[in-house]
Amino acid sequence: MNGKILASTVRRVLNQLRHDHRTVGLLVVVPPLLLTLLYYMYYEDSPLVFQRIALTMLGIFPFIIMFLITSIAMLRERTTGTLERLLTTPMGKVDLLFGYGTAFGLAAAIQASIACAVAYLFLGLQTQGSVGLVILIAIANAVLGMALGLLASAFARTEFQAVQFMPLIVAPQLLLCGLFVARENMAGWLQAIANALPMTYSVEALTEVGRYAEPTATLWKDLGIVAGCVVVALVLASATLRRRTD
């Protein structure tokens, strides 16, 4: 890894985001907007349901959004030839992957902070644990989304295909992560699938923050699993960055 190349790649990816005002706007506005919607759906009649769903959503938004943004950004690198060009320069694959990871991790940190601020200050979200942990889990989820997005981009030839990986990769995790039906209440084979999906663990970690004032062992274990999944996805993604092609 080369620090100078990594830093300039982070700056480059953030500059690309910065020039795209509408995307920045959507990144900042959409999560608070959806949380507000949830607030009016549940808060009056079932405030506890709101608490549970809002907390979970704080982890799910960054995952979905970074998955989409990264898979499209990486697909563009592949189709416009910039990826091939980068791979003919002294840049290492690790510099590129970590460059994306760091840049989108930073973007996710800002996004999560704003969403948390709105949720805690205006929508009455309460957790026993600290908001810092919620943001940390949100960032971990964003980086997970990014890593899976990088990987997914290798299997898409067009942007149409890339966006369709979202329902394929994100939806099952969303359905089985415990948001709709608690994991304990699922059929055994569904539980087995849920246990194999990384988002299950980030949702469990968020639930822990909701329940306990201090970070629990389960929380750290869950974060460790998410981090492990990130590493596996990045290693696989790195194998799809080929210097020589047909």
Binding site: K4, I5, S8, T9, R11, R12, N15, Q16, H19, D20, T80, G81, T82, E84, R85, L86, T89, P90, M91
Partner: peptide
């Protein structure tokens, strides 16, 4: 390359400075 492989969503200077930074 024949087809421009530069970042369309960066300025000209940002592109050239980025590729410069890799060397």
């Amino acid at each position: 390359t024949q087809a421009p492989s530069v970042y369309a969503d960066l300025t000209v200077r940002e592109n050239v400075r980025y590729f410069a930074s890799l060397y």
